[in-house]
Every structure is written in C-alpha cells, then in structure tokens.
Amino acid sequence: MEVKQGYSVAKDDTEFSNSLDKIVDYRGDSTVFMQDGSTVEGYIFDVVAETLHIYPIEGDKKEIPLTEVSKIEVTGKDTAEGKSWEAWVAKKKKEKEQQQNEE
C-alpha cells in the first residue's frame, strides 16, 4: 500500500501497524481522529511503546496513546515528493541535453 495525501487507515484495520510505519516516514502532516470525536492535526514523527509522538500544527509536542485513536488520515502534502537528488540529476541532465540540441 502506498501512503500519500488522502490515505487513511482505521485503528482496527489489519494494515494499521504497517501503515503507521509508513505514515511516520511520510514527510507531511496527518490528522489523528480520536475515539472521543476530537482531532489532532500535525506531523507524526515517531511511535514508541504504542504511543504516537506528534507535533501539532500549533503548540508543543504531544504524545497520544494508540488506544485513544480511531483513525489516521494523511492530510498534508508530501514535502519530499519529486525532490530527491536522483530527480534533480535527471532534470539537469535533461536540461543540458536540450541545451546541446538547441546549439
């Protein structure tokens, strides 16, 4: 499964654990839906001992026990998309080839 903007996974989904690892690696914000109906939107940067570590968009770091979570949705843009070194090298190569062709 690919984790990208718009992807969501429920706590009782069998894929939840795998998805969570990928959400932690994702370079964008997610929204955590709590069992009490509230939400926390921010950057999830770690999961330790069944607890989410998140920087909410506003305020300080928060720790959220997974037992209080009902669903997580990837809501922010992937800030790493298309910005790899390899993508940059390929782009520059293409530009140089175009330049040479024009000359």
Binding site: D29, Y55, I57, G76, T79, K83, W88, V89
Partner: peptide
C-alpha cells in the same frame, strides 16, 4: 538543495 532530507518538512516544523 535537491535531495536534502533535512528541509523536507511541513512549514510548521521548519518554523520550530
């Protein structure tokens, strides 16, 4: 810089 993983974060993280 292309490929720099240190700057690829949402804006609110970069402000911290």
């Amino acid at each position: 810089c292309a490929g720099c993983g240190k700057i690829q974060y949402p804006g609110h993280i970069l402000k911290r």
